[in-house]
Amino acid sequence: MSGVVERSPALLVPGLTGSKEDFLAVLQTLAHSGRRVVAIDLRGQYETPGPEEPGAYTCAALGADVDAVAQVVGGGESIHLVGHSFGGLVAREAVIDGRTKFTSFTLMSAGPAGIVGRRARDSRQIMEEVPDRGLEHVWHTGLEREALTGGVSDEILSFLHKRMLANSPTGLARMAEQVLTMRDRTDELREIEVPALVLFGEQDDGWPTESQVEMSVRLQAECVVVPGAAHSPAVEAPETTAAALIRFWNAAEARLLDTRSDLV
């Protein structure tokens, strides 16, 4: 989505069972800040097909996809990168590999290493049960219950069901394994010296909020806690989340302009 394009574009990467639609509530506000904003599916997610090869769904392989998309979106210039949950681990790979220059990087509800707690149990169910029992089984025994407990409308429930069944089973199972076992690469990310933001809901039930705060300290990154939000602040508190992103992006762009001026 685009407003009047005057600022650096942004690329938004979704989480494990998510898709580009998870950012719908923030896209218009972000675009109206004067930049092109692109949300994607990862390969094998929803409307983006992927191969039936497990190696295609490692964080490194998916991070290479993010690199490729970022270079197209940016047209050779640096862009802002946002990764939600598992998408944060994927996007982190793209930043660390150094193939693409990013204006800023935001970890949204994403921790330093493998996920823990209740969402780890969900990911383990996907990893263990999808290959043998299928997507429909995992939907009815896990994600559907979560959606119903959250009180979503029939329309949204229908979409979530459709989206779940559209995933590549191989891809989803492999990505679930990755989100459970990913190693801590915070120190490597810090060496890149890209302006970073750690943003999460105050009631996040993914990575512990304490571990995300600690990660922000290690990164010397800004940390924003979104009131009233849980694991999906772009859905649960879209205006607060969008405002935090815009403010951070504007500051990162100003810093980049100052750096370029110093080099002239």
Rank of each mutant, 00 (worst) to 15 (best):
residue 26 V to Y: 11
residue 121 R to T: 06
residue 103 T to K: 12
residue 4 V to M: 13
residue 131 P to Q: 04
residue 189 L to V: 06
residue 59 C to A: 10
residue 259 T to M: 12
residue 224 V to E: 09
residue 170 T to V: 15
residue 101 K to L: 12
residue 43 R to N: 01
residue 217 V to G: 10
residue 94 A to C: 11
residue 47 E to L: 13
residue 64 A to N: 07
residue 184 D to T: 01
residue 241 T to A: 08
residue 30 L to Q: 05
residue 41 D to L: 04
residue 22 D to P: 08
residue 31 A to W: 04
residue 192 I to E: 13
residue 74 G to S: 01
residue 219 L to F: 01
residue 87 G to L: 02
residue 105 F to G: 04
residue 78 S to W: 02
residue 240 T to R: 13
residue 159 F to R: 15
residue 208 P to A: 02
residue 233 P to E: 08
residue 195 P to R: 07
residue 77 E to I: 02
residue 146 E to S: 14
residue 134 G to T: 03
residue 191 E to F: 05
residue 228 G to V: 01
residue 12 L to T: 05
residue 204 D to C: 11
residue 65 D to G: 06
residue 44 G to M: 04
residue 29 T to D: 11
residue 215 M to P: 01
residue 48 T to I: 01
residue 148 L to V: 15
residue 173 A to E: 09
residue 135 L to P: 04
residue 154 D to L: 14
residue 155 E to Y: 11
residue 129 E to K: 14
residue 45 Q to N: 03
residue 210 E to D: 15
residue 264 V to D: 14
residue 111 G to W: 06
residue 240 T to D: 12
residue 233 P to D: 06
residue 134 G to R: 05
residue 170 T to S: 12
residue 138 V to R: 00
residue 55 G to Q: 02
residue 149 T to W: 13
residue 78 S to M: 05
residue 154 D to F: 13
residue 56 A to P: 06
residue 249 W to N: 00
residue 15 G to V: 03
residue 114 G to I: 08
residue 260 R to V: 10
residue 136 E to V: 09
residue 133 R to L: 12
residue 252 A to S: 11
residue 150 G to N: 15
residue 168 S to R: 11
residue 59 C to L: 13
residue 12 L to P: 05
residue 81 L to E: 00
residue 74 G to R: 01
residue 199 L to E: 05
residue 258 D to L: 14
residue 255 R to E: 11
residue 10 A to Y: 06
residue 260 R to C: 09
residue 166 A to M: 13
residue 75 G to S: 01
residue 60 A to W: 07
residue 243 A to Y: 07
residue 52 E to H: 11
residue 136 E to G: 06
residue 200 F to C: 11
residue 115 I to G: 04
residue 171 G to I: 07
residue 18 G to S: 15
residue 112 P to C: 04
residue 161 H to W: 12
residue 155 E to I: 13
residue 53 E to F: 08
residue 138 V to S: 00
residue 80 H to G: 00
residue 65 D to E: 10
residue 241 T to W: 08
residue 241 T to R: 09
residue 39 A to E: 00
residue 97 D to T: 13
residue 256 L to F: 07
residue 159 F to C: 08
residue 222 E to N: 07
residue 190 R to W: 09
residue 87 G to D: 02
residue 156 I to R: 15
residue 112 P to Q: 03
residue 176 A to C: 05
residue 85 S to A: 04
residue 32 H to A: 15
